[in-house]
Nucleic acid binder design. Sequence first.
DNA 1: CCATGATCATTA
DNA 2: TAATGATCATGG
Length: 214
Amino acid sequence: MKIITRAIAIKNLKKYIGQDLRTLALKYGITTYETGKQNKGWKGLVLERLAGLQNNVSKAPNGLTYELKSVAFHKVKGKLVPKETMAITMINPAELKQHDFFESHAWAKLKAIVFCAVEWNGQNAKNAKLLEVTSLDFAEDDELIKEIKADYDFIRAKLIKEGFDALTGKDGKWIQARTKGTGGINPRTGERRPITRAFYARTGLVRKIFEIAS
DNA sequence: CCATGATCATTA
DNA sequence: TAATGATCATGG
């Protein structure tokens, strides 16, 4: 098990800029959508492989101290803009109540992040060209971080005051608490699965991060 | 079974 | 088109 530092991960990823991730997914044996099913996470899995990481799906930063993320971009009048939000991490209501922003998983992931811009070409994402790889370190006194912390605090206060069910994706200027979970019906019990949420970075934040990093 | 990867579907 | 909420395949 080799240790992949952030610098190495970036270096590894940069070799693949301009290439189609679908082709690479096939090479690594990662299911995309061609089995007739939809694996929405395949791009992320491919990128983790390309970076040299061994672990596929686990909690916490998938690297050593950094987090690898991909964001879908699409072109509007020749300009590249983030198309969608980006999942940061799951919300654990109990932890959210107890932890301050700088103790949270969200911050741990955000502060040392490696971004991969991936081109998005419509539904079913047949093409997925790797556009750019960049990394960013946040400082605790960045203006942006202060605002993000304010969002976190707002969501946290709402959770404490009104409960988990009161949370909504509308809250937050830079980050939001969107629903995220397995979804559907539990086949064993026939019950609806419980609603879970995760922190998401809004497109504006994604954009900002790219500005800062470049 | 559940968190993680992130996109898809729906509505305004 | 943008924003929110819902959903799916995967692997430990």
